[in-house]
């Protein structure tokens, strides 16, 4: 089988292996690591993770599909994840979502045609006391307002 995952992936995994009583427990860490390299989890990557763990590909897919953070479809370069749960809602998350949809010209859940942005709605991100909150890829953006959201989007556009 052609390898898609790098030596870095296998290096990170072999460091983790002794920390678990069996290899199956490495499924979540392996999927995280694979997604870090690939940005999302295409079929061939899932197959390679399955081969590494020693289970059927269908089993990996079944696990991966349970968790919202594993992207089974490609996502934009910057994935904007806006929390719309209670605490954020109470402090204006709906307006922010509306603004983001308008500004990016996509609906929540979609990716812009240039592949720069994916816009998603998130459940509580665990930062409610600094609501409203968004994640831009791995980074939290807290006490978010329309101006900061606009600036962030413009910055990404200029960096392309």
């Amino acid at each position: 089988m052609e390898k898609h995952l790098s030596d870095r992936f296998y290096g990170a995994m072999s460091k983790l292996e002794p920390r678990y009583p069996n290899k199956k427990a490495l499924i979540l860490p392996a999927l995280h690591q694979a997604q870090k390299e690939y940005g999302w989890l295409p079929k061939e990557v899932l197959a390679e993770v399955a081969e590494y763990i020693g289970v059927h590909e269908a089993q990996i897919r079944e696990v991966a599909s349970f968790y919202t953070m594993y992207n089974l479809k490609p996502v934009g370069k910057t994935h904007l994840k806006l929390c719309t749960n209670v605490a954020c809602c109470l402090r204006g998350a709906d307006d922010l979502m509306e603004y983001a949809e308008k500004k990016l010209g996509v609906k929540c859940g979609e990716t812009t045609p240039d592949g720069l942005f994916t816009l998603s709605e998130e459940e509580c991100l665990g930062a409610c006391t600094t609501a409203p909150v968004m994640m831009a890829n791995d980074e939290y953006v807290e006490n978010l307002d329309i101006r900061a959201l606009n600036e962030l989007i413009e910055k990404v556009k200029h960096e392309r």
Partner: peptide, 11 residues
């Protein structure tokens, strides 16, 4: 896991 909406102390 800190996932009950409203909670952010463990963080």
């Amino acid at each position: 896991d800190e996932s009950e909406p409203g909670t952010c102390k463990d963080r």
